[in-house]
Amino acid sequence: MKTISIISPCFNEVENVQRCYDAVQALFAGDGPLAGYRCEHIFADNASTDGTVDILRALAAADPGLKVILNARNFGPFRSNFNALRAATGDAVLVFLPVDMQDPPEMIPEFVKLWESGCEVVAGARANREESLALRLCRGVFYRMVRGLSEIDIPVDVGEFQLIDRKVWKAVVEHDDHYPYIRGIIASVGFRRVIVPYTWAARKRGLSKNNLPRLVDQALNGIFSFTNVPMRLCTLAGVTLAGLCFFYALVSVGLWFALPHMAPRGTTTLIVAFFFLSGVQMCFMGILGEYVTSIHAQVRKRPLVVERERLNMADTVVESGTPNPVHQMREQIASAA
Rank of each mutant, 00 (worst) to 15 (best):
A134E: 14
R147N: 15
L114F: 00
I164N: 07
V112A: 08
V121D: 05
V121S: 09
G140L: 04
D157R: 09
E116M: 08
V112F: 09
G124Q: 07
S150T: 04
F142E: 14
L114Y: 01
D153N: 06
I108L: 14
D153S: 03
R166H: 11
D103F: 03
C119S: 13
F142M: 10
G118N: 03
F111P: 03
N128Y: 10
F161M: 04
Q102V: 12
M145T: 14
E160K: 00
R126M: 14
R136H: 08
P155C: 02
E120M: 06
K113P: 00
V112D: 02
K167I: 08
G140S: 10
E131C: 13
V141S: 03
D165A: 15
L137Y: 14
A134W: 11
A127G: 01
R126K: 15
E110L: 13
D153H: 01
M145L: 14
E116A: 13
K167Q: 14
E106Q: 13
F111R: 05
I164R: 10
E116L: 10
Q162S: 15
P105A: 12
F161L: 08
G118D: 05
V168R: 03
E110C: 06
Y143L: 00
V158K: 01
G140F: 10
V141R: 01
G159I: 05
D165Y: 03
